[in-house]
Design a protein around this nucleic acid. Structure first.
Lengths: 412, 412
DNA sequence: CCGCGCTGGTCAAAGGTCAC
DNA sequence: GGTGACCTTTGACCAGCGCG
């Protein structure tokens, strides 16, 4: 459950970061079309060719070689967001090296002595999981998402999110999560019961929380939900605002400072999703194995930047904590009768009260999922009855009821 | 404009030619002693090469750079005709700078400021935190603990832990935690309020979770508390047993498989303790810095073993989750009246109901703390009143009440 | 054969450091 | 706070190697 929230939070940050990048470089499209190969992709100086995997100038080439050779560990004196251009490229070596890696330079391309280039060593012996698989899964899921960063220019036109809107956003993210998981071979090879377990358990982390912290407006520092609502830090609903404040402070700010890449984001998402401690898991070992592969991939994706891998992994506890609080707030609001929690989401997340209204309210979602192919087989009812695991929210029970409904099989 | 370009071009060619000449003339040393090429064209000191367009010594080079960088406007106290030589070059800045320009120095050749090098202080620039500091803190704390691993040969002789026993164990761990923190210089340098925050906030994690998961009996797979009780997986109290099962499955088993070393454990403990997201923290940045150092230390302590660093960090989410559940169970038990939670622990962890009995029941703990030196200053009462942060457990409030008690200052 | 692309290396002249 | 002897980093330029 909490994993889903976390994943949702991540999604929001990722989208925001990509929109931020577009804001800061509005004309990069034209320039790169004309002088694609002649500009250094790190500092925009005149490039002298491809070096270590990226078009770059002699300066960045030499800098990268020296840094890799001497195994330098730079530290940014500011907030790891320094501008790297021709004039300022020598002002922060940490950010320059970071941009080298980000531009595609690989430290394996730096040879010592006069080595022959050992070209064909790059294999996928580490397992079937790879960065490209994760990135592709992410890209495939993106097309289902109705939300686009470019559309978020006018913040004042957006409605303020109430608890119900947050729930709706989480529901949408949940559907996308299933699609995402189906794109990962390791997931498909798991036992069907465990597949259900993982999706259900990770819902709040990836479906709820992550979407918020990622869809925040860079101008106003306000989180934006997947369905185009603004979550105000001080709004009409105190619970929602509290969560928004925590998202900004504990998740958005650190991730913004880290300036997470797409690859890193993809790995982090997989690490959160493949949770071996997921309650009710029949065979945790395969899941643990996949998570191990994912965290090793993340380590590689951070490109030897001192402490970066650790900082990214240390996002998980606050992500879990915020997701937890978010679900708790939703339940609280429901108990107080302040919001009309969608009955589907209620079943999925809160595990109480099956209602007849569920069928109607899930109609839209069902239509959206018509194109989805089935990977998770229909869940045999009653199989989960014996499983009980302490949890503030009995999600498995909720899913059981949900899966008994006729139209629910379409989600999987 | 064009003239300038031409002049610049000429200068470039001239520089290139002179450097070429030097390359082709390995015996230039003798010759240049006679010619003006080895003399600073500003002060006639020995030149160290061409700088900013003119042959000059290090002194004039540095003077010119500083003057240009800081955009200094000097004035001559005499008639702008001062003699500038090796002895008198520091007597008039105006005339020295004038002569620099006249000798051919161009202010365009002075570049922007670069990144710091600061390689000399790298030995201690990594921070005062080190493995040895952490190991020493751990060792110093151990002596206060009454529990010794060797004494645990007879598992059958131990009593089965009830909720009350677990609480008692947590209270002891809390006291040890304060002692441990005081051994870390970075902790002592924090503001007093933030020190209190960290201790209180990490109490469930370090006082509860990790203490149990690490004090387990290797023969019988049963967790053992600090005060020599066994936590049964299937015991009279269902809540306790559930926690025990999770501890074994999610914490003990993975840690046992990893075979965590003392150094790694010490780092992990510091990473958990220095939580920048700790509610109520005044200045999170120093805490984040210390945690960064700690996680880098852990990375180094894992000795390049593939994936080991990640696996260790991935212990934190389940640790947080178990700690959370444990405290929740204790509160549940208290509500049901099944256990007599020690009033001190109740205040510290559950944040409710100050009781007169607290003084009596903490007598033993107070005696034990007589030897502790005071590092955290007495907490000014009322200072935390305005701080409120959503938490399942209002620990800060609990601590406030606790700190108002007369004997509580001894703990810090 | 020769040019091209991408390695490696060199070292003048930039930079920064820190007792004085 | 400036000075300057002393050290590190930068990047324009050159050579070597594999390839089409």
């Amino acid at each position: 459950l909490y994993t889903n929230c976390v994943l949702d939070l991540l999604e929001t940050i990722r989208v925001q970061l990509s929109s931020e990048r577009m804001q800061f470089n509005p004309a990069h499209g034209e320039i790169e079309l004309k002088t694609n190969g002649s500009l250094c992709s790190i500092c925009a100086d005149r490039a002298t060719g491809k070096h270590y995997g990226a078009a770059s100038c002699d300066g960045c080439k030499g800098f990268f070689r020296r840094s890799v050779r001497k195994n330098h560990a730079y530290t940014c004196r500011f907030s790891r967001q320094c501008v790297v251009d021709k004039d300022k490229r020598n002002q922060c070596r940490y950010c320059r090296l970071k941009k080298c890696f980000r531009a595609g330079m690989r430290k394996e391309a730096v040879q010592n002595e006069r080595d022959r280039i050992s070209c064909r060593r790059e294999g996928q012996a580490a397992g079937s999981l790879s960065i490209s698989v994760l990135l592709q899964a992410e890209a495939s899921t993106q097309q289902f998402s109705s939300w686009t960063p470019a559309a978020h220019s006018d913040i004042t036109a957006k409605k303020i999110a109430l608890v119900g809107d947050v729930c709706e956003s989480m529901k949408q993210q949940l559907l996308l999560l299933v699609e995402w998981a189906k794109r990962i071979p390791d997931f498909c090879e798991l036992p069907v019961d465990d597949r259900v377990c993982l999706v259900i358990d990770s819902a709040p982390h990836l479906g709820g929380g992550s979407a918020y912290s990622l869809c925040w407006n860079s101008h106003d520092d306000l989180p934006v939900t997947g369905n185009d609502f603004v979550i105000p830090v001080s709004g009409p609903e105190l619970e929602v605002s509290k969560v928004a404040a925590r998202i900004l402070e504990e998740l958005v700010r650190p991730l913004r400072e880290l300036d997470i890449t797409d690859s890193e984001f993809a790995c982090l998402k997989a690490i959160i999703f493949f949770a071996p401690d997921c309650p009710g898991l029949e065979s945790p070992q395969p899941v643990r194995r996949v998570r191990f592969q994912a965290q090793v991939l993340l380590d590689e994706a951070t490109c030897e930047q001192r402490g970066r891998f650790g900082e990214l992994l240390l996002m998980l506890p606050p992500l879990q904590s915020v997701a937890w609080q978010m679900v708790e707030q939703l339940q609280l609001a429901r108990l107080l009768g302040e919001a009309s929690v969608d009955s589907l989401l209620q079943e999925m997340l809160l595990g109480e009260g099956a209602s007849a209204a569920a069928t109607a309210s899930t109609a839209a979602a069902t239509r959206a999922s018509d194109n989805f192919t089935s990977v998770i087989l229909p869940v045999p009812t009653g199989k989960f009855g014996s499983i009980y695991h302490f949890n503030m929210l009995n999600l498995r029970g909720a899913f059981l009821k949900f899966s008994r409904q006729a139209d629910s099989e379409q989600y999987f």
